[in-house]
Amino acid sequence: MINTKEIESPMSLSNQFGDNFNIIVNNMFNFFNNYGNNIGKQKVLSYFDEQNITLQEINNLLLNDQNNSNSIYLLGKFNHLGIGISVNNKKAFELYQKAAKLGNAFGINNLGNCYENGIGTDIDKKKAFELYQKAVELGNAFGINNLGCCYENGIGSRIRKCIWNK
């Protein structure tokens, strides 16, 4: 006997989830937006358990939704944090780059983080600073925080002391 669940095509998975797929993507996106990497990862995994979604199913759906910048960003997160797959920083960098090219503020911010910390690429503090600026222009709260840290610590910019640091 063959388990047909194991050989289902990504298209039939997409049909199985239907409109709920967009809800699933938005929920995952919000977990990372609201809680950051570590807690966001735990929230995502708990959510999958509650919804009876396997990591393979969601990975396949994200892989087949590469026109949606949020799906691309999330796939980058999965590679970066090792959610359902092995950590692959090079692939995470490439996916954040792809999401950033589509104007995704979270992709832009995470791409800046990759450049700042050498995640999947060489360290380039100036490029990180520029990407954080772009994320800020798009209203990304994490970008605002990261840009502030750049100014405070002279990352890609001159150090600018905050009033409370005098």
Score class of each variant (00 low, 15 high):
residue 1 M to Y: 12
residue 3 N to G: 03
residue 4 T to C: 07
residue 9 S to T: 13
residue 14 S to F: 15
residue 17 F to P: 00
residue 20 N to S: 08
residue 20 N to E: 13
residue 22 N to W: 05
residue 24 I to H: 09
residue 28 M to N: 15
residue 29 F to S: 05
residue 29 F to A: 08
residue 30 N to P: 12
residue 30 N to M: 14
residue 31 F to S: 03
residue 31 F to H: 06
residue 32 F to R: 07
residue 32 F to W: 09
residue 34 N to V: 09
residue 37 N to S: 13
residue 41 K to I: 12
residue 43 K to Y: 14
residue 45 L to K: 12
residue 47 Y to F: 10
residue 48 F to M: 09
residue 49 D to I: 13
residue 49 D to A: 10
residue 50 E to H: 08
residue 54 T to C: 01
residue 59 N to H: 14
residue 60 N to R: 13
residue 61 L to W: 05
residue 63 L to Q: 14
residue 64 N to V: 05
residue 66 Q to R: 13
residue 66 Q to N: 15
residue 67 N to C: 11
residue 67 N to D: 15
residue 69 S to W: 00
residue 72 I to M: 03
residue 75 L to Q: 05
residue 76 G to T: 09
residue 77 K to M: 15
residue 78 F to D: 01
residue 79 N to R: 06
residue 79 N to L: 06
residue 81 L to H: 05
residue 81 L to F: 09
residue 83 I to Q: 07
residue 83 I to M: 09
residue 85 I to H: 09
residue 88 N to Y: 07
residue 88 N to A: 04
residue 89 N to Y: 09
residue 91 K to G: 01
residue 92 A to E: 02
residue 93 F to W: 00
residue 95 L to S: 00
residue 106 F to Q: 13
residue 107 G to V: 10
residue 108 I to T: 06
residue 109 N to M: 02
residue 113 N to I: 13
residue 116 E to I: 03
residue 116 E to P: 01
residue 117 N to K: 10
residue 118 G to W: 03
residue 122 D to Q: 14
residue 123 I to H: 03
residue 126 K to N: 09
residue 127 K to W: 02
residue 130 E to P: 01
residue 134 K to H: 03
residue 139 G to E: 06
residue 140 N to H: 10
residue 143 G to Y: 00
residue 144 I to H: 06
residue 144 I to L: 05
residue 146 N to D: 05
residue 147 L to N: 02
residue 149 C to H: 10
residue 150 C to M: 01
residue 154 G to C: 02
residue 155 I to A: 01
residue 157 S to D: 02
residue 157 S to R: 01
residue 158 R to I: 14
residue 159 I to C: 07
residue 159 I to P: 05
residue 160 R to V: 10
residue 161 K to Y: 06
residue 163 I to P: 07
residue 164 W to P: 02
residue 165 N to K: 09
residue 165 N to Y: 02
